[in-house]
Amino acid sequence: MSDFNLLDPFQFLSIPLGDWVESALNYLVQNFRDFFRAIRWPIDQVLSGIDSALHAMPPMVIIVLVSLFGWQIAGRRMGIFCAVVMFCLGLIGVWSESMTTLSLVLTSVFFCVIFGVPLGIVCARSDKVERMVRPLLDAMQTLPAFVYLVPVVMLFGIGDVPGVLVTIVFALPPLVRLTNLGIRQVPEDKIEASRAFGATPKQMLYKVQLPLATPTIMAGMNQTLMLSLSMVVIASMISVAGLGQMVLRGIGRLDMGLATVGGVGLVLLAILLDRLTQAMGQRSEAGITCHWYETGPVGFFYSLFRKAANSR
């Protein structure tokens, strides 16, 4: 080794990072198999529940339900929009794949909400926790999506559940951040007023902070949903089913038709989810002038019911 060259020291110096990681992962896999299995279990349950529900229902039923939901939260036009988009998904022949992707996205959003919102609340309440969590969130967001796949595949193998897991990790940060932000942004005078009327910290959280932070939290939801969708597509590389896989397979086989159909399906799904969550955020943000049960389909039946009650 006498030919050490200062201009190119890396002939001589190297760190066997790959070996280290491999042996570390091997150790983890061998010794903590049960732990990783335990993590898989709840995700598996939720995913298969949502997935089988979405696949069991006839498409028309789902279209009607989604449209009613859209109508309820954002008016009649949103309802019609939902129906059209869902109908198109069926028409181009990707209904089943869409439902798979949707169930993957919903599962990961479900877990993101379960972990993200409470974590955001804790961050908002304690500067110390926030200081600790922030770099973690930064790392989670700056790491290229692709890189996540490596450790997850090592630890959890391939398939839908690791796909959801990777998606959760990728999509969690904005929800935590925006929940934190939303609660911190609640005007001081409202907090003071609720304290002056003798609210406990818990009452303050549920009656004042969370309701007032809802628009921001919904914006976080929207971000999380969009990130989930993009990650679910990338995760098709670890053999996650759905629209992403169509695109991947299409590219692999140079089958542009298949890839395009999958892509269009993804776009339609993305637009639908984006519009719906944005509408939810706006609804809680824009000046509320009436109660939720006075609008949308519920309001329609409510007024029918009231009329019937009055005429009696």
Binding site: P187, D189, E192, A196, K207
Partner: peptide, 13 residues
């Protein structure tokens, strides 16, 4: 004791 605030501090929701 209850309090009335300069900024009203009503709950908008």
């Amino acid at each position: 004791m209850s309090m009335v605030f300069q900024s009203f501090a009503l709950m908008p929701h």
